[in-house]
Design a protein around this nucleic acid. Structure first.
Length: 441
RNA sequence: UCCGGGGUAGCUCAGCCGGUAGAGCAGCUGGCUGUUAACCAGCGGGUCGGGGGUUCGAGUCCCUCCCCCGGAGCCA
């Protein structure tokens, strides 16, 4: 039986007769000679057969093969300058395993909605294929990074009894005789866990019922959330810049081929090394209120920056623009941030928190903070925010029994993949996107 | 929720001042021994998003509803 070879390895079998199992991406039939372009999970190769090689029956089968039929072929590996990829397969046999009548995605332009309706098939095509391989590399890099630094993976629950940051953006579901909510963050479960293992992280899907209709939002997205005991805001910031730099270097090293397919300008990624520039909220506010920046936001139709309020999408773009790597903005006003953030002892109206903004207008990829470790202060904040104390009883225990300063952050995988691959729309950075308008396929 | 754009063939779109539906691709038939989104010839294919109105006549104008896209806010 002929040895089956994956397409990326064909170069190692020059002159040999091998089998390739894949899918037909294109047929160019020219009468007495036919070209069938075949794809497998590893790459693409052109196969060729003439009438005298295979006879009219096989040639007719090649001619009749439709896009995305699966096929097993055998042939001789040949280096050929005329073949895309440098190698081609001179066929001896061509057998269709499963035919593919009326394949919906033509080698032509399609609208986004149509492609997303056929996402399960669109995955076979070049763009999604390259992006999702980068995503795989990003996720593997994160796990390696965490493991090497002795962080313990703590899988946080998806079904939760109550809100982490308020119920308005939670998906609600029945849980026997009570209500449950899909998790929007694992953080509250990690804080107690970091007091068991010092350094922990969770990495899983999170759900937000925000009615956001932008290219930067999904209702289901994946987040990596490290949490460290005996840690301050500075420790969290140092970890964030180290992790982001590690991920980018890893993709540049191992997924160069995919970035090329995506026509990503990799020079913009090569400069992503520590240290990242740091701006306090007050410094950022000073930049945003400069006349030229006020004018820019106005011209773009963005709402004006109001000192004391949170940063908008345009504000993040303006702040990130001068830098060739992500910028870290820290110490926002306490009022615009979550209840659990530690106030800055030197300025209690500022929170010890940080947002990391990706360059090139890709926006916030990380949000983190030092957490309140004083039980009384935390209890007061829960009350101020109108949150039900009963739901946070277990959470407060982390402060009641041997509290320590601790800090962590959450990083959105899709936004990182979007930035690294140069993909504007987050929905293309996840295999099966969930948005406010889409629950199919 | 607000602001902007859109819905015409399987797909991507054109359709002027209102006059009765068009292209490319895909599909099908035939031709072609080195194609690169091959090419050439031919064929089939339409509830013009739904409803209502104006008009001799509506894809085109008006009202209304639905759906999609982009942006804002919120966030990762």
């Amino acid at each position: 039986m002929t040895q089956a070879v994956r397409i990326k390895d064909l170069g190692r079998h020059e002159g040999q007769v091998v089998a390739v199992r894949g899918w037909v991406t294109h047929v160019r039939s020219k009468g007495k000679i036919a070209f069938v372009v075949l794809r497998d999970g590893s790459g693409i190769v052109q196969t060729v057969a003439s009438l005298q090689d295979v006879g009219d029956e096989t040639l007719a089968r090649m001619d009749a093969a439709t896009q995305e039929s699966s096929a097993v072929v055998t042939g001789t590996v040949r280096a050929d300058r005329r073949a895309p990829g440098g190698y081609e397969l001179q066929l001896k046999s061509f057998e269709v395993t499963g035919d593919s009548p009326d394949y919906p995605i033509a080698p032509k332009e399609h609208g986004v909605e149509y492609l997303l309706d056929h996402r399960h098939l669109w995955l076979r095509h070049r763009g999604p294929w390259a992006i999702l391989r980068v995503r795989d590399e990003v996720e593997k890099a994160i796990r390696d990074f965490m493991y090497d630094r002795e962080f313990v993976l703590i899988d946080s629950p998806i079904l939760t009894p109550a809100a982490c940051e308020g119920t308005s953006t939670l998906f609600e579901t029945d849980y026997f005789d009570e209500k449950a909510y899909l998790s929007q963050s694992g953080q509250l479960y990690l804080e107690p866990a970091c007091m068991a293992f010092d350094k922990v992280y969770c990495f899983g899907p999170t759900f937000r019922a925000e009615k956001s209709k932008t290219r930067r939002h999904l209702t289901e997205f994946w987040m990596i959330e490290p949490e460290m005991a005996w840690a301050t805001l500075d420790d969290a910031m140092a970890l964030a810049e180290e992790m982001v730099s590690y991920i980018v270097a890893r993709v540049l090293d191992r997924r160069a081929e995919e970035l090329k397919v995506l026509e990503r300008d990799t020079s913009k990624l090569e400069s992503v090394v520590p240290p990242f520039p740091r701006l306090s909220y007050d410094e950022a506010a000073a930049i945003l209120t400069r006349p030229e920046n006020v004018k820019r936001a106005e011209e773009a139709g963005a709402p004006p920056f109001v000192p004391g309020s949170d940063l908008g999408a345009m504000d993040e773009t303006i702040l990130g623009e001068p830098f060739d790597r992500p910028v870290m903005i820290h110490r926002y006003p306490v009022e615009v941030k979550a209840f659990y953030m530690q106030p800055d002892p030197e300025r209690p109206d500022r929170a010890l928190c940080v947002d990391v903004i990706a360059p090139e207008g890709y926006g916030e990829i990380i949000g983190g903070s030092q957490r309140i470790h004083d039980p009384e202060l935390l209890q007061a904040r829960i009350a101020e925010h109108g949150l039900p104390e009963s739901a946070f009883r277990w959470y407060l225990d982390a402060r009641r029994y041997g509290t320590v300063p601790h800090a962590g952050f959450g990083m959105g995988i899709e936004r990182v993949v979007g930035w690294i691959t140069g993909t504007r729309h987050l929905r293309e950075t996840i295999p099966y996107p969930r948005t406010i308008q889409r629950l199919y396929p």
